[in-house]
Simulated assay, not measured.
Amino acid sequence: MGDKCKVVVAGDASVGKSALLTKFLFNIFVQDYNFTVGIDFHSKFVKLKSGENVRLQLWDTAGQERFRALLPSYLRDCCTILIVYDVTSRKSFDGIPFWIDYVKRHTTKQPPIILVGMKIDLINRREVSLTDAQIIAKKYELNVFEVSAATGEGVEALFQKTAEIANETLKIKLTDSTVQIPFERFSSLNEQKTSKKCC
């Protein structure tokens, strides 16, 4: 069946989050999207190089500020976060520090973040270079990918890496989530067992 890894996709409105997921999930490109209202949920299996199957639970979040209050509840227990920006919009790129800070403030165990630059097919409209992205990625110690939902360039590689990182994060979480019985409860259980033996 494979493990379930929760992946949250965040970023400003209209940067291409829904287009990215639609390309990955269904291999189709829809040029004109209505903006996401609240949260959309998708799921897909990815086969790792190790042969393991990982089920990515993909949460497509709304970029509009009025929906932002919903996001913290969806950030809980996520294995990886994709922060998406538009390479043709310097404004969306300049918003990356805000999103990184937002994620850090609303998650207890800091999940890995991957930066995703969208719309690289629009060469003549590019405002953000790969070097720009690599500089900010190095500053925050993040992975960075540039992709195109229109052509599909980089999409499979992005989600292969996402699945690998999410799977490793999930394994760490499962290792850390050992069940501990409080001492008082443990003592009472022992007393119950002892009393039963005596009778």
Rank of each mutant, 00 (worst) to 15 (best):
L75P: 02
A69T: 06
V116F: 08
S73I: 10
R76E: 08
I83M: 01
F93Q: 02
D86I: 07
L71V: 12
R68E: 04
I83H: 00
Y102F: 15
L71W: 09
Y85W: 11
K91M: 05
K91Y: 09
R105K: 14
L70C: 06
T80W: 04
I81M: 14
G95F: 12
L58D: 06
Q110A: 14
F98E: 09
D77N: 15
I120Q: 03
G117S: 08
T80G: 00
I83T: 01
L82G: 03
A62P: 02
R90I: 05
F67N: 00
P72N: 08
I81K: 08
W59M: 06
K104T: 06
F93H: 03
I81S: 08
Y102E: 11
Y102N: 10
P72F: 13
Y102D: 10
I114R: 04
W99C: 05
L70V: 08
W59S: 05
E65V: 10
D77M: 12
W99E: 06
C79Y: 13
H106R: 03
P111F: 12
L115F: 15
G63M: 08
L70I: 13
S89L: 02
H106A: 02
D60P: 03
T107G: 13
R105M: 08
V84A: 04
T61P: 01
A62S: 15
W99N: 06
P112I: 13
F93S: 01
G63I: 05
T88C: 13
D86C: 08
Y74T: 10
E65C: 07
M118W: 01
F67E: 01
K109I: 11
R66H: 13
S89R: 03
L71Y: 05
G117L: 09
F93K: 03
T61Q: 03
C78I: 13
W59R: 07
P72C: 10
T61N: 02
V87F: 10
Q110S: 15
C78F: 14
K104G: 04
A62K: 06
T108L: 12
E65D: 14
V103I: 14
D86H: 09
D60T: 03
L71N: 01
V116A: 04
H106N: 15
D86F: 12
F93Y: 15
S73D: 07
S73Y: 07
F93D: 00
S92H: 06
Q64E: 13
I96F: 08
Q64A: 11
G117C: 07
P97V: 09
S89F: 04
S89A: 04
P97D: 10
I100P: 00
G117F: 11
T107H: 14
I81N: 07
Y85C: 10
K104C: 02
T61L: 13
G95S: 15
K104Y: 14
D77K: 15
R105P: 00
